[in-house]
Amino acid sequence: MTFLFWILATLSVIGGLGMLLSRKAVHSALWLALTMMCLAVLYVAQSAVFLGTVQVIVYTGAVMMLFLFVLMLIGVSAADSLRESIRGQRPVAVLVAVALGATLIAAVGNALDFSVGLQAANAEYGGNVQGLAALMFGRYLIAFEATAALLITAALGATILAHRERLFPRQDQRTRSVERFRSGVHPGQRPSPGVYARHNAVDVPALLPDGSAVPDSIPGPLRARGTVREIDATATEEVLDRLVGGAASDTGGER
């Protein structure tokens, strides 16, 4: 048991630090999931079988997936720049956090130097789940009912917050097309990536006839994420030479 605790404790602290230090929100979420899994195991190790299970299902399964879902919705570009904008915030925050941890350990680190164990309590109603159920629907019934109200309220609130009032008539393909031609900025289709490029992968910008890249041809999310592949300049020259050089000799030749 001791061995398991140390392994899991180390892993969960690593997970926490990973969440804290990751530049990208997705990575943070994954690190946090690791910590939560470790905690679930630690719950089970402390005879809280039901809570361990709920931890996995509710936290790791539902809450963390909700986080990832929201991250997907608002875009992967939501990466922090690590430059601190409030002067003096970072060192003071680290200091305060360390002080908090130290005081907390000092306060509760040796508060419970005994352990009664849950064998008796779990066995009373024939198991951990039964014991919890007896408490929840007994002593804590009103609180339990209140959580039901809380959850419904939260669901309703989330619905209202996420709801977007339609202020303008819905734009179908036809109206969008008319709008595009009316503005006259770029009436036609945008260039697709990979055209005249060495690769026709989606992260390679299209090339114009003079060999320069068209940034607009890369899909927005890729541009935001910064995963646009650079064009190899020498290779482009080579291709151009081969294409334009040959065309220069037979004048007006069809390409």
Binding site: T2, S12, G16, L20, T35, L42, Q46, V98, G109, S115
Partner: peptide, 26 residues
Amino acid sequence: MSPDAYLSLASILFAIGAAGVLLRRN
């Protein structure tokens, strides 16, 4: 394992969480 070790772990995780609130802008 004694409960004190668990409580210390909880304290450390709590402090890491607090540091996250104070440090991350996202």
